[in-house]
């Protein structure tokens, strides 16, 4: 439970962090809250030679309204998001979801940028973000670019982030009073989800219909329940639409759940999430 040897670079600006990534190539890793990276390093499943700590860069933690969007700094801790008044008013699914990540210790260290960059198919906030739709703002040696969330999560711990890029911000649409629900299924309160479902009503009809629906732990990455979204857009009932939630997914099997049970949970939780969202 002791990581292999590594060098630590403490970046004081995003530019410096990017420069360090460029310098050390694939031997370097960004260190944010450390609550995904450090456990992997302690188990020696990851052995980066250089850690670029972005925890000391000022101004990376914020939640603010910008036009029709809410902008969230990549360094915002789960706990900060959970307690944030702007988020509660403008995108209430996010503080609610953030409050269900792990335990208080994890929430006080982990960051939204870290959880998005990590690309774990079972992670909570990426599921809610994917249901919301929006963008990831990243900065690399050539400056900033914007990647839609729907194009960001590519596969098992695989994202659209390049090796020399840093996530600086997440932007999501303001949902205000539209209905939403996050259904997380765990055996214990502080566990990762066995399956989770985020459903968000869109004021404008959104990307895929009246609701954005996303699933955790149903495929190599967090995914949208496209068949459900489309059925809702066609005017199908919640029950009919939810019955399609696992369409096109490819869940893994482990000791908590085999594929059949995960598919069942996806359908069940989607129904419950949509019912709650519709009742709100």
């Amino acid at each position: 439970m002791i990581p292999g040897p590594f060098e630590l670079v403490r970046a004081t600006s995003v530019d410096e962090a990017v420069a360090a990534l460029v310098e050390h190539g694939d031997d370097a890793k960004i260190l944010a809250g450390g609550h995904s990276l450090l456990p992997l390093m302690k188990l020696r499943l990851a052995m980066p030679g250089v850690l670029v700590d972005i925890g000391g860069i000022p101004g990376m933690s914020y939640v603010r309204v910008e036009g029709d969007e809410v902008a969230i700094g990549a360094g915002t801790r789960h706990h900060e998001l959970e307690k944030d008044a702007v988020a509660a008013a403008e995108v209430p699914i996010l503080p609610c979801t953030a409050g269900q990540v792990g335990d208080p210790q994890v929430r006080h260290r982990g960051t939204i940028g870290g959880t998005v960059a990590h690309g774990d198919p079972a992670s909570d906030l990426p599921t809610a973000l994917l249901a919301l739709g929006g963008d990831v703002v990243v900065q690399g040696p050539d400056g900033r670019r914007t990647v839609p969330l729907t194009e960001f999560f590519l596969g098992f711990f695989e994202t659209a982030l390049a090796e020399d890029e840093v996530i600086v911000e997440i932007r999501v649409p303001r949902t205000g009073s539209a209905g939403w629900a996050y259904e997380k299924f765990t055996r214990r309160a502080n566990d990762w989800p066995i399956v989770a479902v985020a459903a968000v009503g869109h004021r404008t009809g959104g990307v895929g219909g009246p609701y954005g629906v996303a699933l955790a732990n149903m495929a190599g990455s967090v995914v949208r329940a496209t068949a459900t979204e489309e059925a809702l857009a066609r005017g199908a009932s919640i029950a009919e639409a939810a019955a399609l939630a696992d369409e096109g997914t490819n869940p893994s099997a482990d000791m908590h759940a085999d594929q059949e049970y995960r598919r069942h949970l996806a359908r069940l939780l989607t129904r419950r999430a949509l019912e709650r969202a519709a009742a709100a």
Binding site: P39, L43, R187, R188, A189, W192, M255
Partner: peptide
């Protein structure tokens, strides 16, 4: 309700971290 040490068919432990071995906490 929760706990079980598990092995696969080759005798490899499946519950060798606390991420996999669900010991009970006050919330349950």
């Amino acid at each position: 309700l929760l706990e079980e040490v598990r092995y696969d068919a080759d005798g490899n432990p499946q519950t060798s971290t606390l991420a996999d071995y669900p010991f009970v906490s006050a919330t349950e």
